[in-house]
Structure formats: C-alpha cells, structure tokens
C-alpha cells in the first residue's frame, strides 16, 4: 500500500511538472509582456531595463527555474489588470468558490443518489423513465441558459431571490442549484446502472430471503456496494464542477475564482490565468490521487 501511494505521488508530481512546463511555454508564446507594461513613449533603453527587471533577458531554462522557484513560494507575479499580487487576487476569491462548490457537490450527490436509487428500484416504471428523461435533457440543455431562466423566473418575475452577487443565504440558492445540476445527469445515470447491477446479486437476494425490510436491503446492503464504482467518477465530477463554476459564477456575478478566470482570459491577464490553471491542476491531481487510494482501500480486491 505504501509503495503504491509513493508511486502514485511520483507520477502526480511528474504530471504536474509537465503541466507547469506547458503553461510556462504558453505564457512566453502569448506575446512580449514588456510591450503590455511599457508606456507608449518608452525608448529602447527603457524596454531593455524593464526586461532586465522582469528577468526576461536570461535564458529560457533559467527563466523556467525562477518561475518554478517563485511558484512554490506562492509567488505568481503581479496581475497585469489591477497591479496586485496574483496570490492576493486569488486568495480573496477562493473562499467564495469553495463554499459554492462544496454546497453544490453535496446537493448534487444527495439528489442524484435519491434519483438514481429510485429509478433502479422502480426499474421499468414511469418513475424510471422520468428520471431517465431528466438525465437526458440535463445532458443536452446548456447549463448557462438554465441559470439565465432561473434568474428570470425567481429573481426578476417572482422577485423571491437576488439576481446576483454574494450576501445572505438567499444568494446561495440559485447558484448552488444550477451548479449542482451540472453533475446531476451523469451521476444519476451512473448510480442507476451500478444499483441495477447490485440489486441483481446473490447477497441482495439473501438479504431479502432473510426477511429484511426493503428499505434496509436497498439503502444499506445494496447501496454500499453500488457506491464503489462511483468513486472512480469522483475525479470527473470534480472536473465538471470546475467547468460549471466558471460558467455559473459568470452568470451570477459570483466573486469566485471561476469568474476571475473568465474575466482574466477576456482581459488577457496572463499571470492570473497561469496561476489558476496550475492551482486547478494541483487540485485535480490530488483529487484523483485520493480517489485511487480510497478505491484500493475500500475494495480489497484491488491491489496494485
């Protein structure tokens, strides 16, 4: 087990280094940052001075090494747009995204568990078809549009909820609902098919023969084993939440890192984009690592 974890950690580290190289290369390909920073009347000497100040006169490997060294200290340079340290800009916004994302994940998992299990238990009935319909429609409709419609109905026409921004708990309702909808279709389908497989197994039959109530059979005996394959999907789910956060935060003017990402791209604020991509890459790699370890731990049949 320890050997397995160490190998996986090393693999994740190598992947991270490759990603950082790609991001660094792209940053250099995006044009001369000196031209963006220098005043229009700057002389060639001025440009050279800025270049030396930024360390751009050194060789590329040297520059990459500095970039790597600074990144590990949490120093990602200065935002071109508002001239603040990138780490500060991100740090201010990160908590908003974490609260939004976690609530959406919790809600999404509970709703899709309920829907998926119900559909599997009532296999072939109209309830099953209904859940399937929701899943199919949910995969097709653009989620940003769903968010717009929700704002129009609940905020503009009915006036029940605020349209955008942060504040009290009522500000959370629409963003969390729409964000959780991002992961709902795929999770529901996975739970349904995994549940159907388990409900067909011998030990579920045994539990029924023993005379256990249907509730205990389904929610305790069957569900526990049905969840194992879902662990592998956790990494992908995290990815959809990141994607969703960019879109949903933009629609609801939510001051999180998703909207920061979208804004920085439009403003071509490369230091911020670069730091955010690295941050997400680290978190994605960590989530996948955790999933792998948990999978090996939960299911003793799997040994690497």
């Amino acid at each position: 087990m320890v050997r397995f974890i160490i190998i996986r950690l090393l693999q994740a580290l190598i992947t991270l280094i490759v990603i950082s190289m790609v991001v660094f290369a792209l940053a250099r390909a995006s044009g001369d940052p000196v031209m963006l920073m220098a005043p229009p009347m700057a002389t060639l000497d001025d440009l050279q001075a800025i270049r030396e100040y930024l360390g751009l006169n050194k060789s590329l490997p040297e520059q990459y090494w500095t970039f790597l060294k600074n990144s590990t200290h949490g120093d990602f340079g200065t935002s071109i747009h508002n001239r603040q340290p990138v780490s500060k800009v991100i740090g201010e916004r990160l908590p908003n995204t974490i609260t939004l994302g976690l609530s959406a994940i919790l809600l999404g998992i509970s709703v899709s568990l309920f829907l998926g299990v119900t559909a599997a238990v009532k296999y072939g009935t109209w309830l099953d078809s209904g859940v399937k319909l929701i899943a199919i429609l949910g995969q097709a409709l653009p989620s940003f549009w769903l968010a717009i419609v929700a704002i129009a109905i609940f905020s503009v026409w009915l006036g029940w909820l605020p349209t955008s921004g942060t504040g009290g708990p009522d500000h959370y309702v629409l963003p969390v609902l729409t964000l959780s909808f991002f992961m709902l279709p795929i999770m529901t389908r996975l739970i349904r098919s995994s549940m159907l497989e388990v409900l067909d197994s011998e030990y579920v039959k045994l539990a029924r023969i023993k005379g256990l109530s249907e509730k205990i059979v389904v929610w305790k005996h069957a569900l526990r084993n049905a969840i194992i394959p879902l662990l592998t999907a956790a990494g992908i789910t995290f990815g959809t939440i990141v994607t969703g956060a960019v879109v949903i935060e933009t629609v609801f003017a939510w001051p999180g890192i998703g909207r920061l990402m979208a804004e920085s791209v439009v403003q071509r604020d490369f230091p911020v984009v670069q730091a955010l991509v690295l941050l997400v890459a680290i978190v994605v790699l960590m989530v996948n690592l955790l999933v792998d370890i948990m999978y090996a731990y939960v299911d003793p049949r799997i040994r690497y």
Partner: peptide
C-alpha cells in the same frame, strides 16, 4: 491526465494566449 483535466480550462488558457 488529459481525461482528468477540465477541457474548458485548457480552452480558456489557450484563448488567453
């Protein structure tokens, strides 16, 4: 690694570049 990484993020990164 490619499967785990959110596609939209790469697209945004390249859009910025």
């Amino acid at each position: 690694a490619a499967l785990a990484f959110p596609a939209l993020l790469i697209a945004l990164l390249l859009g910025a570049v």
